[in-house]
Amino acid sequence: MTPPAGSLLSAEALRKAYGPTLALDGAEFSIHPGEVVAVMGPSGSGKSTLLHCLAGIVTPDSGTITYNGRELSAMSDAQRSALRRSDFGFVFQFGQLVPELTCVENVALPLRLNGTPRKEAERTALTWMERLEVDDLRKKRPGEVSGGQGQRVAVARSLVTNPRVLFADEPTGALDSLNGERVMELLTDAARSTNAAVVLVTHEARVAAYSDREIVVRDGKSRDMERIV
């Protein structure tokens, strides 16, 4: 099979086992630039594993992942790390901000990992923090801000490198509905404005409602609801 025309990131027949547990069993995926795709499914169904495979964090046991015409599994670990630094952004549920760094330093971190000088990186970081309405937190440390604010900082950090694909794993999982919605609005607005694709892993329908379409993972198999209907 060839990836659907125009897709930025696609996966075919992914299989991944953790010991005796089969996390993915023939999963498929594809996403276009500027598209927001929700990955849904019950817990333990393999949603997160699918995201990790797509992001090149985890290597699948078999199957192909194509990003922008390049085969991910053919790349070395260092190449995939470099790709994650330059082309991908990440938001997780929690535990992602470095507690010792101030918020603006946290946001600037991906830029600095790419070699951007500190001053310039923090300037760019600040513009993103303004967009996510957290620029007043720049001198604070993650321990001193609320969960919603912290998650916005994390979103700002995920977008600071202008990624082509943004991976969000339960980005609102630790937030109340109002904060969760605000984070989702800001996240999807920002992604759309930069034409970034968003892979959004969630089990919450109201979060998934911010997507353009959804993919359901069950027992390691994925179902692309749009292609079926």
Partner: peptide
């Protein structure tokens, strides 16, 4: 542990 994994996710080099 979790923080380290997150840092690796967004491409932090082991060397760093």
């Amino acid at each position: 542990k979790k923080l380290l994994s997150a840092l690796v996710a967004f491409g932090t080099r082991r060397r760093t």
